[in-house]
Design a protein around this nucleic acid. Structure first.
Lengths: 231, 231
DNA sequence: ATGGCCACCTACCGAACGTTCGGTTGCGCA
DNA sequence: TGCGCAACCGAACGTTCGGTAGGTGGCCAT
């Protein structure tokens, strides 16, 4: 079923390559994935890949750029019109969690393969800039909440790093068919996050899913990415 | 300084190789590190490495096994004689955080390179077993606290995964010379964790550091592992 | 019908990969 | 003085790597 998805002749070849790349980079890592692995997954030769992609690293950079753009754009959409720091923090937590739960492959690549880009290259610098731009949303929200007396926090940076790790970790263990629904996860994580800043939990604990990014290459559904977690 | 450390003739060659391997695997990843990289780091030829190591993968498996053993043993030491679930959870959080802060290299390898071991190999299965054995400490502590009415938790599994991600994420951003001291980080994370289970924060928010594992190959001090985080 | 172009192929390049083999060196010990 | 062994080295093994050059087949517009 996945096979037919990846080799479907009707789908645009570029998209099929990107889909396979996300899958393989997430499973094995960028360095452990060869262009020939990629070619085999889409029923091509390695030379054929280079008709669609200028280099292996450019492919990774493209994926990471689009992943970050989707994250940033959807965050802007989700936060639009929401002004209360507690509501904004709740949405930051729940949207980051939901994106990682729903797109485990591309988020693993996004979060974990920065080191595979040539340091100080323009692509590397660009991704760093995008990451910083996203984190600024968290920085501003926490600062606003503290300034307004809504949050009580010992160290804003520590709080942000702790909560972001909690959210991004979701891609490592969440399963569509697992024990917890997405709504449960979001509600639980928002509760933890708001308790961390000593603020009351807002009414809405999950963004409108239609505002989240749609990554066309994220393969559908259940795929074993890592060793299963017990219970 | 690092150079002389890695090439110090007085240090045992096996240890020097492991030290360099931890550094390189943490920086670049296992797949992106060649045996020749390793050899260059310890001033040997690639052939010389194989006098001390049976294969590249066996080297990784050894490092991961010893890392997990150290984690498990130190956790047993830290928890010895502590019976209250809140105290135990606080120590689980603070010790896992401290280990990741003080040993960022080996913990990155431990947490992130499981996929580089051949699936279903004996080494792979062994590491999975060690990981499960460690996580059982968390499972039992959370279950005890809920059973005893000390913790109030919506979903024990979600809580555990959230808090463990928070702790392990520390190795990605903590710096010895950074803005936050280890004591601050531990205190903050324990506060977040105990708030997540609606329990009062225990007195002790950090284990005796002498009970934590001593990894002989963890290179000393500040080494830039990833792109710096702002503010 | 035919010329052009897109999408891919076969075939190959130089380099690097993990690993092995057969020395050689130098130190400890009888 | 001589032997053995740990600790390497130089060179090479076969394989795979990312990437390239040039060709081929089919479809589309003229």
């Amino acid at each position: 079923m996945l096979e037919t998805y990846l080799t479907d002749r009707d789908a645009d070849a570029s998209l099929r390559i990107r889909t396979a790349a996300v899958l393989l980079f997430a499973r094995q890592g960028y360095a452990a994935t060869s262009v020939r692995d990629l070619a085999r997954a889409v029923n091509m030769t390695n030379a054929g890949i280079y008709h669609h992609v200028s280099s292996k690293e450019a492919l990774l950079a493209d994926l990471m750029r689009e992943a970050h753009r989707g994250l940033i754009d959807s965050t802007v959409r989700v936060l639009a019109g929401v002004s209360g720091p507690a509501e904004r923090l709740g949405l930051l937590i729940s949207s980051l969690t939901a994106i990682h739960a729903l797109n485990p492959m591309i988020t693993r690549v996004m979060d974990g393969e920065l080191r595979s880009l040539t340091p100080a290259s323009s692509a590397y610098d660009e991704i760093i800039g995008l990451r910083d731009a996203y984190e600024d949303q968290w920085r501003r929200t926490l600062a606003d909440g503290v300034a307004g007396g809504v949050f009580r926090v010992a160290d804003q940076r520590l709080t942000r790093l702790a909560l972001m790790s909690m959210c991004t970790g979701t891609s490592e263990w969440y399963r569509h068919d697992g024990d917890s629904s997405l709504d449960q996860v979001c509600a639980e994580f928002v509760a933890i996050g708001l308790a961390a800043v000593r603020a009351p939990v807002p009414m809405i604990t999950r963004p409108d899913l239609s505002l989240l990014p749609i990554y066309p290459w994220e393969p559908p559904d259940v795929l074993p990415l890592s060793a299963p977690y017990r219970s």
